[in-house]
């Protein structure tokens, strides 16, 4: 059990009368790559956003790396340093250069000197294949480039866990491959990852486990081959038929 990176118990999240998460139990082991799939509105993104408390849970317990982040006494800023997040719409800081985007958090939070952070930014840009964009402003980048910078930015804090919230949904099809390639590389290096995506190919190839959600509940989970090839639940079957036939 010490190897559990994410341990969610009976998580409920309501937006007013809208019950988005109806008692979720969810675990992620160290080095595990978990892909969350399910129809839109099923609560995947909300679950992900609860994991670093961008959404405050209504009730339930969320333990990340042994820290109870659903406890209001927990220093959430400190906990977040260890949880990287990549957003659907990239959310690069528009007022900063690519290098500053990556170096800001490590320097501001005293993790690195300016020089160290700049050095690290360069290395990270090399790993995502964008070292020539070091001094560029975000607005001059394509969507795929933006998303790779965003991944580099999250990695700069050297997190143990990475959360991906539909990282390729806002991209032109020809850009998707580059971003997925970076994510695969990360997975291979042993990063613990929770990924919300509609890329079933990625899920099959990279995921250790696939979790299918519907209506604010976890309906089915298992190894990708099991879930994709022998779905047990009718809702899973219906969903997969639609997605794979497209």
């Amino acid at each position: 059990m010490t190897d559990l990176k994410v341990d969610v118990k009976n998580l409920v999240k309501n937006f007013g009368d809208n019950h988005v998460l109806k008692g979720i139990n969810f675990e992620v082991a160290n080095n595990e790559v978990v892909v969350l799939i399910g129809p839109s509105g099923s609560g995947k993104s909300t679950l992900l956003r609860c994991l670093n408390r961008l959404e405050d849970p209504t009730s339930g317990k969320i333990v990340i790396d042994g820290k109870d982040i659903s406890d209001s006494k927990t220093n959430i800023d400190q906990a977040r340093e260890n949880i990287g997040m990549v957003f659907q719409h990239f959310n690069l800081f528009n007022n900063l250069t690519v290098e500053q985007n990556i170096a800001l958090a490590p320097t501001e939070l005293g993790k690195a000197s300016k020089e160290e952070a700049a050095d690290q930014a360069k290395k990270l840009l090399e790993t995502v294949g964008l070292v020539d964009k070091y001094d560029a402003m975000p607005r001059s980048l394509s969507g795929g480039q933006k998303q790779r910078v965003a991944i580099a930015r999250a990695l700069a804090m050297k997190p143990d866990i990475m959360l991906f919230d539909e990282p390729t949904s806002a991209l032109d099809p020809e850009m998707v491959g580059d971003v997925l390639a970076v994510m695969k590389k990360l997975a291979k290096e042993g990063m613990t990852m929770v990924v919300v995506t509609h890329e079933m190919g990625f899920a099959k190839e990279v995921a250790d486990r696939v979790v299918f959600m519907a209506d604010g509940k976890v309906v089915e989970e298992g190894k990708p081959t099991d879930v994709f090839e022998h779905p047990q639940n009718d809702r899973t079957k219906a969903f997969l038929e639609k997605v794979i036939n497209v």
């Binding site: 340093e81 990287g84 959310n91 800081f93 528009n94 007022n95 900063l96 958090a105 999250a154």
Partner: peptide
């Protein structure tokens, strides 16, 4: 865009720093 604040907070920056380094400079413009 609220995503700017979210991205800053997700990196562990406290509200004050996220506001002063990211949101305010864009808001002032």
């Amino acid at each position: 865009d609220s995503g700017q604040m979210e991205a800053a907070r997700s990196l562990g920056l406290p509200f004050r720093k996220a506001m002063s380094k990211i949101v305010l400079p864009q808001g002032i413009k």
